[in-house]
Design a protein around this nucleic acid. Structure first.
Lengths: 257, 257
DNA sequence: ACCCTACAGTCCCCTGGACGACTGGAGGAG
DNA sequence: CTCCTCCAGTCGTCCAGGGGACTGTAGGGT
C-alpha cells in the first residue's frame, strides 16, 4: 500500500487528489475487497492534511459506493455482491409446475439459502399508479409485502397488489400461498397467465429502503414494476420490487419484428 | 418556508434533523423544483449551529440527488428530468422503414430537439465482454461512440461494437450511416435482424460519465447492453449505453409461456 | 447607452481542535 | 480457565474560524 503525495499546484483540491489515489489503489488491486483503507489518522499523517480533509476524501469514495465505513473498525473496500441474473423467463410455467415460486427455484440453482421475512398482508386503497395498471375504480386491493433474503442478507423488497375481487377467499390472502406461489394460485382460480410487462427504473433508495435492504451509502436501487395479464387480457397483479442495484442484472429478449 | 428547531435529545444528530426538515419541506411542496434552499448562513443563524453542520445537512440531500449546489448562486431543488419511456419495440422494423433511427423517431414524437455529438469511430481490440457476446476470437471490432442530446442536454452515451468483418467497407464505418441508422445498413448488408437481448444494470457513474452526462452528485446511471442477432442467430452488434437513471423508464413485455 | 469595476452574497476548501461511541484485545480479578 | 474491566484505535459529530472562487447587481465612468 504505497500512496503518493499532494501537489498544491494541481487544480484538483487535496481531498480529491487523495480520493483519486485511493480509488486508483482499489482499481489496481493494491486494495482488494475487504481490505481496510488507511485510517483517517494515517492519512492525515501521510499527506499532512487536517482530519476533515482526509474524511472528505473517504466520503467521496463512500458516495461512489466503493468503500464502507464501520464505526470503531475502519473503512473497507466493498465486497461486490454476488450477482443475480434475472432472465425474463423466470416466471415461465415450467418453473411453477416444478412446485416452486420463482425466487426459490433460482436460489436453489445458485446453491444459496433463500429466505423470506417481513411478510405483511393487508387490504388497502390502491394508489393511482396501481389503480391505473390494474384498471380499477375505487375497489380495494390486497397488498402482499415481503422481503427476500439470500444467505441471510436482504436483497429485495416487494409488494404485490391484487384486486380484492380476485384474491378474496383464496390462498393468495394467506401468508403462505402454497406450492408454486401466488401465480400458481391465480391459475387455479381460472386466471391463466398470458404475459407480463415490466417497467424498470433506477434511483437512490429512500431511508426506509436503505434500512430494510441494509444498504451502505452510495448504492442505488433498481425498481421493477411487473404487471401480470391473464389470457383475457385482464391485469391480475402488479408487483412493485426494489432491489439493491449492484446485485442484479436483468435480462430481456425481444424480437426485431 | 417555515423551518423547525433542533431537539438535542433526539437520537438523530443535528445535521440529520436539519436534512430531514429540508427534505420534508421539499416533499410537502414548500420548496418546489428550482427553488433556492436557505443559504448556509441562514441555516446557521436559524438553527444556531456551526456552518460545517449546516453544510453537512445539505451534503446529505446532495447525496440523495434531491438538490444541486451552484457555486456562487445557492442550492436549488432539482428539477426532475422529463422521463423517456423506452418500449422494447423501439427498434421495430417499421420505425426503420420510416427512414429514421430509433432515437430520432422518438424525439420527434416527444416534440423535443434531438442531437448527437462526440461521435468517434475507431477500430479497437474487443474487451472480453464484447468478445464473448459477439462470439469473436482475436478479431478487431469497429467501435462507434456517441452522445445523445435532447434539447441540448446530454441524456445518454453509447458505444456500438461490430465485428470488423461485417462493418468494413460499409456506411456503418461512416460518421453518418444514412437513413434508418446502422440497423438499416446491417440489413442492407444481408444481416436481417431477428431479435435483441438487453442486459440492464444500475450503478453510480464514473467521473468520466458524470462529466459527459453533466450529472450532479447522487444521480445513478442505467446501463443497458443490447446485443442484436440476425436471422442466422449470429450476434452482429453489441451496444453499450449509459443513461441518466431518473430520465428513463424501460418497458419490456414477455410471455408467461 | 454602454461598459467596467466594486461588492455583497453564496458555496468551496482547509485548519485544528474537541468530545462521543463503537470495537477488539490486553490484562487483571475471581 | 473464565469473565470482566480497561484502554487504545477507529469513525461520527460538532465547533469556530479563515481564505478562495464564483455570480449577479449596483453604481460610476466613458
Amino acid at each position: 500500500m504505497q500512496l503518493g503525495a499532494i501537489d498544491r499546484r494541481d487544480d484538483r483540491p487535496p481531498y480529491r487528489q487523495i480520493a483519486d489515489q485511493l480509488r486508483a489503489a482499489i482499481d489496481a488491486g493494491d486494495l482488494r475487497p475487504g481490505d481496510r483503507l488507511p485510517s483517517e489518522a494515517e492519512l492525515t499523517r501521510h499527506y499532512s492534511v487536517a482530519r476533515m480533509t482526509a474524511r472528505q476524501a473517504i466520503q467521496e469514495l463512500r458516495g461512489e459506493g466503493r468503500v464502507v465505513a464501520e464505526h470503531g473498525r475502519g473503512v473497507f473496500v466493498r465486497t461486490p455482491a454476488p450477482v443475480r441474473r434475472l432472465a425474463s423467463d423466470r416466471f415461465a410455467r415450467k418453473h411453477r409446475e416444478a412446485g416452486q415460486a420463482a425466487f426459490l427455484a433460482e436460489a436453489d440453482k445458485a446453491g444459496a439459502v433463500p429466505g423470506v421475512d417481513q411478510i405483511e398482508i393487508t387490504y388497502v386503497a390502491a394508489s393511482p399508479e396501481v389503480r391505473e395498471r390494474l384498471r380499477l375504480g375505487e375497489e380495494e386491493v390486497l397488498a402482499r409485502s415481503r422481503r427476500y433474503l439470500l444467505d441471510g442478507r436482504p436483497i429485495e423488497v416487494a409488494v404485490s397488489y391484487l384486486p380484492r375481487s380476485i384474491a378474496d377467499g383464496t390462498p393468495i390472502a394467506e401468508a403462505n400461498p402454497g406450492p408454486g406461489g401466488i401465480y400458481a394460485r391465480l391459475e387455479d382460480a381460472g386466471h391463466v397467465l398470458d404475459h407480463f410487462t415490466e417497467e424498470v427504473t433506477a434511483r437512490m433508495p429512500t431511508n426506509d429502503e436503505r434500512r430494510r435492504l441494509e444498504l451502505p451509502d452510495g448504492v442505488p436501487v433498481l425498481v421493477v414494476v411487473r404487471t401480470a395479464f391473464d389470457t383475457e387480457g385482464t391485469p391480475v397483479e402488479v408487483c412493485d420490487t426494489v432491489k439493491a442495484a449492484p446485485a442484479y442484472v436483468l435480462e430481456y429478449d425481444f424480437p426485431a419484428r
